[in-house]
C-alpha cells in the first residue's frame, strides 16, 4: 500500500467571474520514504493540491471529487478533528513563503514546541530539547531558539521552518518552493540538507517547484502539471531521458540544466490558459506544436506508456518503446 494515493482529485475555486478549474482529475502515488517532485508554471495548481491534501483550502474552494488515501484512510471524508491529528503528525508542510510562516509575536522555539506539544504528550522541557536537536539537524545554532522571528535572517527563518516541519516526525513532508526566496548558494545547501534529513529519518517528501532542474536533483520521481492537470508522471531519470508530453519537453528546454550539456534555451509560445474557461480537449493543445484534431475535442487519458511512466497526451513524443 502506498503512503499516499491521490485519485482523480478535482477542485475548483468559486469566484464572481465563474469557477476556476484549479485541480482537475489529478492522480498520483507516493511510497513511504520516497521523494517526488511536482513541477509546473506558477498558477498551475501545484500549491492547490498541497492545500487540498491538508484540507487547508480557503472558503471559496470547492472540493468536487476524488480521494486522498493516506495510509489507506480517505482524508477527504474524515471528520475535522481526525484531520487535525493528521496535520503535521502525518503530513507536514514547508510553506512557500517561509519568511511569513512564523508568527512575529512568539519566539521561534515556542512556535515549534507548540506544534510538538499539540501532537505528542511530552513536557515543555523535553520538547525544547527536541527543538535543539532539530535545530542542529538543519544547521541552526541552538542559542537562537529563544529569539523572535525578526531577529532571524532569511536563511535562518527558512531553516527554522524546515525544523518546524520535521518536528513531529511526519511520514510525509510537502515542501512548497522551499528555497525560492533564497540565493542560489544557500538554495542548494538547504535542499541538500533537507534531502539528507529525509534519508536519515526515512520520510516521504513531496517537492513543489516551478524549477524542474532544482527538484530533479532531489526527487526520485517527477510529476509535471499544466493548467490544473497532471500531464506526466514517472521516474526522474526516465522523464529526463524520454520526456513524453510536449509540455515536459518544452519545460525542460526552458531551464538551463546544471549538469547537462549546453543547449539553446527555448521559450514556449503563448500563455497559460485562463482557468476560468480552460480549453476543451487537452488543455495544452493551443500551445502544442504537435496538436492534432482530436486534441481540441477530447481530453487525453492519463495512461501508462511504459511501466511507471504515465502521460496524458494523444501524441506522446517518445517513450513508447
Amino acid at each position: 500500500m502506498p503512503l499516499l494515493d491521490v485519485r482523480n482529485l478535482t477542485m475548483h475555486y468559486v469566484t464572481k467571474m465563474g469557477d476556476v478549474h484549479a485541480v482537475d482529475d489529478v492522480s498520483f502515488m507516493i511510497e513511504a520514504g520516497e521523494a517526488i517532485g511536482l513541477v509546473g508554471e506558477s498558477g498551475c495548481g501545484k500549491t492547490s493540491i498541497a492545500l487540498t491534501l491538508l484540507r487547508l483550502l480557503p472558503d471559496n474552494a470547492r472540493f468536487l471529487g476524488g480521494q486522498v488515501l493516506f495510509e489507506g484512510k480517505d482524508l477527504t471524508h474524515i471528520p475535522e478533528e481526525e484531520m487535525r491529528k493528521i496535520r503535521w503528525r502525518g503530513i507536514s508542510m514547508i510553506f512557500q513563503a517561509a519568511m511569513n510562516s512564523l508568527n512575529p509575536v512568539y519566539r521561534v522555539g515556542d512556535q515549534i514546541i507548540e506544534a510538538i506539544q499539540n501532537h505528542l504528550p511530552i513536557s515543555y522541557r523535553e520538547a525544547k530539547r527536541r527543538v535543539s536537536e532539530l535545530f542542529e539537524l538543519v544547521g541552526l545554532p541552538p542559542e537562537v531558539i529563544d529569539r523572535y522571528p525578526h531577529e532571524y535572517s532569511g536563511g535562518m527563518k527558512q531553516r527554522a521552518v524546515i525544523a518546524m516541519a520535521l518536528a513531529c516526525d511526519p511520514k510525509l513532508v510537502i515542501a512548497d518552493e522551499p528555497t525560492t526566496a533564497l540565493d542560489v548558494i544557500v538554495q542548494d545547501h538547504i535542499l541538500r540538507r533537507i534531502d539528507e534529513v529525509r534519508k536519515k529519518l526515512n520520510m516521504a517528501m513531496m517537492y513543489i517547484s516551478h524549477d524542474i532542474a532544482v527538484i530533479a536533483e532531489v526527487s526520485q520521481r517527477l510529476g509535471v502539471m499544466y493548467a490544473g492537470c497532471l500531464v506526466e508522471f514517472g521516474d526522474t531519470v526516465t522523464i529526463f531521458k524520454r520526456p513524453a508530453h510536449p509540455y515536459t519537453v518544452a519545460l525542460m528546454s526552458a531551464f538551463p540544466s546544471i549538469k547537462g550539456e549546453k543547449r539553446k534555451l527555448q521559450g514556449l509560445p503563448g500563455e497559460p490558459p485562463d482557468l476560468l474557461q480552460p480549453p476543451l480537449g487537452c488543455r495544452f493543445h493551443p500551445r502544442c506544436a504537435y496538436a492534432t484534431a482530436i486534441c481540441a475535442q477530447r481530453a487525453p487519458r492519463y495512461e501508462e506508456i511504459e511501466p511507471g511512466h504515465l502521460v496524458a497526451c494523444w501524441n506522446p513524443r517518445s517513450g513508447r518503446a
Partner: peptide, 9 residues
C-alpha cells in the same frame, strides 16, 4: 503564519 498554525494541526 495563520495557515501554518492551522497546518500544524
Amino acid at each position: 503564519y495563520i495557515t501554518t498554525a492551522k497546518a500544524k494541526g
